[in-house]
């Protein structure tokens, strides 16, 4: 396949993944803000913006006034925000057009339909009343594209580059949520067991659609170590770092087999994966949760860069 097509499919799936995760983050933020007073709500929305890396762009648009409707409209649909969910869906579709020959009709139609639907959904401002429906729409679109992908695509390099984009992005997003919220999970800073803690913890899980899975696995016991371990090390959970890296390894292994050669990206990913597999949550907390996440994000980005070089995404 063309290097340019690999680049197109890689970013198409990164953007689709990011759009979906952004919707979840907004949903969790909204839920949290509903249960808090306005000062704390504002704080919650600020942390959403920081997680998305949009706090500066938001301040340039709205100043210091951080309110829910401003934040979610900015994040979801503001034309001045090139990283809005609508802009991401639009870019994903542009990329899909570019790699049209590499994807099935079903995948293309799912992406194109997403774009058409969301363009309508985002044509007018999103109110608090409409927010839930809007977020549902974003999530459903993502699921549709993924379903079309799983059900119709040949398991060739195109499919695996899509996977690489998806899981690098997902690992990045989960790690970012942890990075912004890690203090909530640090036992030394929290009065363990207070109801506020429980709400905060649950909210972290909610941001990655993991609250039900976690409750089910842990019989409703909320504790920060358990949650951190779940999000970082539990291979059963599809948004954990360990899960993403296992899938990433599969995708990369396919390319190595099909092409008959390993790349430097394989080596970096293997090292990261091995380290993750050798860790326990105790060692992570000993070494420092924040440091661990910073290192992880840096390496994750390094893998992405290296893949783009190794597979000639650009000249």
């Amino acid at each position: 396949m063309l290097g340019r097509s690999a680049n197109g499919i890689f970013w198409m799936f990164r953007y689709l993944e990011r759009a979906e995760n952004t919707a979840r983050l907004i949903e969790a933020g909204f839920r949290m803000a509903l249960t808090r007073d306005s000062g704390a709500a504002s704080e919650e929305w600020r942390s959403v913006l920081i997680t998305l890396g949009l706090h500066r762009a938001y301040a340039a648009r709205h100043g210091e006034d951080v309110t829910g409707p401003h934040v979610f409209n900015f994040v979801l649909r503001d034309r001045d925000n090139p990283a809005s969910v609508m802009a991401m869906i639009e870019t994903a579709r542009t990329n899909a057009r570019m790699v049209r020959t590499g994807i099935t009709r079903e995948v293309w139609e799912a992406v194109n339909e997403s774009w058409m639907n969301l363009r309508e959904v985002f044509a007018r401002p999103v109110t608090e009343t409409r927010l839930r429906d809007v977020l549902d729409a974003v999530r459903r679109q993502a699921i549709q594209v993924r379903g079309a992908m799983e059900g119709t695509m040949l398991r060739n390099d195109i499919y695996h580059f899509a996977g690489i984009g998806t899981f690098l992005e997902r690992a990045d997003n989960t790690a970012r949520i942890l990075d912004v919220k890690y203090y909530v999970l640090l036992p030394s800073l929290s009065a363990v067991g207070s109801s506020l803690d429980n709400v905060q913890w649950e909210n972290v899980l909610r941001s990655v659609a993991g609250e039900r899975a976690y409750r089910w696995l842990n019989a409703g016991q909320m504790d920060p170590r358990g949650i951190a371990s779940f999000l970082i090390l539990d291979e059963r959970f599809p948004r954990s770092l360990a899960f993403c890296y296992t899938r990433l390894a599969t995708n990369l292994a396919f390319l190595a087999r099909a092409y008959g050669f390993d790349t430097p990206a394989h080596a970096i990913q293997r090292a990261g994966h091995a380290e993750l597999a050798g860790l326990t949550i105790e060692t992570i907390f000993e070494q420092g949760l924040h440091e661990f996440i910073s290192d992880f994000l840096a390496r994750n980005n390094q893998i992405a860069q290296q893949i783009q070089r190794d597979y000639r995404f650009v000249e």
């Binding site: 396949m1 063309l2 290097g3 340019r4 390099d157 390319l255 092409y259 000639r312 000249e315």
Partner: peptide
């Protein structure tokens, strides 16, 4: 995506 190399026109693939 294309360049001339070794007397042929070649495309940049992965």
């Amino acid at each position: 995506d294309l360049k001339v190399t070794g007397g042929r026109v070649a495309m940049r693939t992965t």
